[in-house]
Amino acid sequence: MTDWKFTARQLVRNPLSLLGIIIIVIFVFIAIFAPLIAPTPESHQQRPYMIPRDGYRAQPEPPSEDHIFGTTQGQYDIFYGVIWGTRSAFRVGLVVIGIVVVIGILLGSLAGYFGGIVDEIIMRITDVFLAFPALILAMAIVAALGPSLNTVIIALTVVSWPSYARLIRGDILQVREEDYIEASRGLGASSARVILRHALPNAIYPTLIMASLDIGAVVLSAAALSFLGLGAPEGYADWGQLTSFARNWIVGPPGDPLKYWYAVTIPGLFILFFVLGWNLLGDAFRDIFDPRLARR
């Protein structure tokens, strides 16, 4: 397992990937300690993910003693929203990617191992899904099922799995042709064993790259859907949702056009940094696992 040690060492040496790791760790910290960082008031104990409101006025309030990041339209506390929104982001990202990787490995392995008609069927199905631009298909699914964060998760899962199935299948097909597989089988190993012990471990690397980059992409898509009103319900602690509140308040009164900057900028920055962290990590993985780079 010196491979992993080498990988870990490379990750830490590269300043960009180190930054990515630090960012992710900070977000994990925020997510875990959300109740401590932004305590839920009494009235909301039953539904901690609904952002507490301080009144019903439409106009957003700037950052103050009571509201560190200010409030949005309808007086939702931005600070509470972005802190608890971290949990929502992780939830969406990890659940979607988790399920998608499992489905991908399963279907991809089946397609690669059996080949023939099984492979054809699975590939045609992925073709169908891949013919639709992701966000649009997700939009259609959410519209059909009714907007909520859970349907967003379902929609994004449906949209993302084909790429992973293809990736794993491709890797297995590639490995199947390698000489050492023939050697293994010459020694009596069964196909299943060959796939499990040789093909899959090698397929992990590109999958890891894709998965870490995708967590960012999934969270971005989820935020976009929520922003468009097709995701989390109004007042839910979700970054995209929070940003949608700012739509009517982008431009302030003529004398002070940037007056409501915090309503737009702050939730957006949280999304940006979260995705940035994962992208930096994924990019670093890509550099490390690049087969063209001489290893030693």
């Binding site: 976009a224 995209g240 940003t243 982008i250 431009v251 737009v264 999304i271 940006l272 995705v275 992208n279």
Partner: peptide, 15 residues
């Protein structure tokens, strides 16, 4: 660039 939420970029640019 590709970590930017498109909608956020749009809003910021508008702002």
């Amino acid at each position: 660039g590709w970590s930017l939420p498109t909608f956020w970029l749009g809003l910021m640019l508008l702002m």
